[in-house]
Design a protein around this nucleic acid. Sequence first.
DNA 1: TTGAAAGCGCTAACAA
DNA 2: TTGTTAGCGCTTTCAA
Lengths: 347, 347
Amino acid sequence: MSKKTETPRSAKRSVTAHDVAKLAGVSQSAVSRHFTPGASVAPKTRQKIIEAAEQLGYRPNLIARSLITKKSNLIGIVLPLNTNPYYQSILEELSYELSTHGYRILLFTNQTGHDSDLLIEEILHYPLDGLILVAVNLSSHLAEECKQNDLPVVMMTRKTESKTISSVTGDNIHGVHTIVDFLLAGKHQKFAYIAGEPQSSTNYDREEAFFSYLASQGFNDVQKAIGYYTYEGARLAARKLLSVSTPPDAIFCANDHMALCALEVAQYEFKLQPGKDISIIGFDDNYLASWDSFQLTTYSQPSKQMVHQAIQLLLEQIEQEDFLPKHIIVKGELIIRYSSRLPLNYQ
Amino acid sequence: MSKKTETPRSAKRSVTAHDVAKLAGVSQSAVSRHFTPGASVAPKTRQKIIEAAEQLGYRPNLIARSLITKKSNLIGIVLPLNTNPYYQSILEELSYELSTHGYRILLFTNQTGHDSDLLIEEILHYPLDGLILVAVNLSSHLAEECKQNDLPVVMMTRKTESKTISSVTGDNIHGVHTIVDFLLAGKHQKFAYIAGEPQSSTNYDREEAFFSYLASQGFNDVQKAIGYYTYEGARLAARKLLSVSTPPDAIFCANDHMALCALEVAQYEFKLQPGKDISIIGFDDNYLASWDSFQLTTYSQPSKQMVHQAIQLLLEQIEQEDFLPKHIIVKGELIIRYSSRLPLNYQ
DNA sequence: TTGAAAGCGCTAACAA
DNA sequence: TTGTTAGCGCTTTCAA
């Protein structure tokens, strides 16, 4: 009784254009045409197709379509989704803006520190229209692979040595210089740096700019601790920097996420009053920075603008045969809040 | 000179199994077999294929494969990616655990408040192996559609009236009762509630439980303001609740995100000391709740466990023909921190 | 173990 | 405007 009969049909057979055609009494290509914007179908035929499709609950299989159109409308996105709130904003904006262009997101998250090459290897098995790498380091080996496969790629908040890959980054140099100028105007005396992932281009740029600019102003005794761009890492780093006899009166953190943690360590563990006893400055202007609990002074990386630029770059690559890689630097601005001491007579 | 010759070839033609076969001097099906785990290929043939594939940089097109295997290894995920940090954790864990099962994520974000029916309509055009809806309300109309299309669906942190869709939710009732018991033990006198999205099942459950349990204990004068599960909404709601002559000494917020905001409003705008002048309690235990700046008392919705359950449920549905919908409630626990007044002699 | 052939669901010539 | 046909890149019978 419960024994299966001749039609197991475990593989779900979805409704196809062929089914609709049969029911409507037209050809399968007529059905295809009806779902192709701008194709010519007689009103009468169209009506029959609409009814049949409606009745069967037919929806064109977009993936099958892509096989022949060579356009999947799929954009791969790789980003670290740890607790750093900045990437949440980036992803949200990517999702929103890509959808307005008719693209869908195939999402890949990479564990921070993991080798992203394996992941990207895997990604190349999908017929993507483009790839956006957020805060991911791309080996020049794989950069070449993407190039060879004609896969448009844009890196966000990172650069690769291979100059063939376009990138959108914040203005690390201008940002750091602005921050240092601000700190110097505030008569800070002892500086420290909480570094991000040492491997990353962003950390390299920010660290290099911070130390060399300070050195040029006569400050050579600048402390450093590595926070690896994580909250936990920053906790240890901040403790280390503050646990000395004469702690710094200014800490620049390579991103906001770490700065927020440093702020808490200074405030709750070392009983220092940010903006008075110590100045803490971040980089990003993530959405927590403006919260009353933090009021973090920071240099902004305008995520909306950067996402917009990245998508424009990607679209250009998709459309143009002979696109030349561009490296866009999006200027931010110093957002002054209460985590830092103001220069006297500051307006 | 720069004029294009006979081969425009603008459509990028990727390397196919056929190309590899030709170069290796074998049939295309041999190539396919080599990339099929467990298929029988002679070592000699295999070697030739490996070399040819390597030379051409061949990778099987996973999407083309899915057309015939009827398995895309794609899971659709819909979730709101506003600034609520809880969903970032959920997405991260979904991504991680799904990848261990060989699944990839097709990501769809829905604007809070937007009609998700249109979005899901769109989603049904993709040959997904499953769909996970996070904090999204699903109309019973579309629930039926999914059922008809044999698309396995699991809802997280929401339920739908249609009992055909499986769900994983936190223990709203137990959570609220635990919270109320704790507040009563702390001798709180005046209660208020900041509501989430009025349409959502979670808000309904929490609100209903909060008000009816308090009423059963003789507290009928309980204030309410709607925060729509957003930070901004909560700000207005908190201000409203606190701007009266005798403000509440206990506010329960329908999620942590709003509770964090309420905490800030109480502290920075109304100069109230949380845990002393006022108790604020949330729901979720998101990653900010434990930060020193907040120390929010809350009832946890263990995201890791919930994600695990949701994926299990989805996998069961994918594998079993005759799966019956399940509704899993994951118990959390009261996490007592400093945003709430402790009962006397509390241990 | 291998290749030929059919076909997944669809689009896009082409001819009628 | 329509149907016929070929074929996207792949897997999977089926015979050899």
